[in-house]
């Protein structure tokens, strides 16, 4: 059967996205392969460098912009990352200037918050609490 090796997030600018996903969120660069004006650019969890990669994909296709604008307007996260201690993570990221559209909130067995990745996406952070 197939394995989940990579999933993609559309980003406005690949270099700005790499800076946010590594310097701010804390992921590590995995692949950076030039492909014309863009690159095959992925990041990984530094604790699991052979684990699932997040591909930072150029958002240039004309269908992407209205799709992402509609999601953002309604506050819908494009994807979700797990954290061990949500409140500590939100405190750390807020101090780094990250904007949250939803503060830490309990939803049944998970505690979640939603941040703006500055690259055109909202991202949910989720801690299993139940």
């Amino acid at each position: 059967m197939p394995h989940i090796t990579v999933f993609s997030v559309f980003v406005d600018d690949q270099r700005a996205a790499l800076a946010f996903y590594t310097d701010v969120l804390g992921f590590a660069l995995k692949d950076d392969v030039p492909m014309g004006e863009h690159a095959w650019l992925t990041v990984v969890d530094p604790a699991d460098p052979d684990g699932t990669q997040v591909s930072l994909e150029p958002a240039g296709h004309p269908a992407v912009a209205p799709f992402r604008e509609a999601l953002m307007a309604d506050g819908i996260p494009f994807t979700s990352f797990g954290v061990d201690d949500l409140d500590a993570e939100v405190e750390r990221l807020t101090a780094a200037g990250v904007v949250f559209t939803q503060p830490p909130t309990d939803f049944g067995p998970v505690r979640t918050a939603v941040l703006d990745d500055t690259c055109g996406n909202l991202i949910q952070l989720a801690q299993l609490t139940g």
């Binding site: 506050g75 939803q102 909130t105 939603v114």
Partner: peptide, 13 residues
């Protein structure tokens, strides 16, 4: 200041 997403999540849970 709740987004539509948060309101929907709250209604569900």
């Amino acid at each position: 200041d709740q987004t539509l997403f948060e309101i929907c999540s709250r209604l569900a849970v």
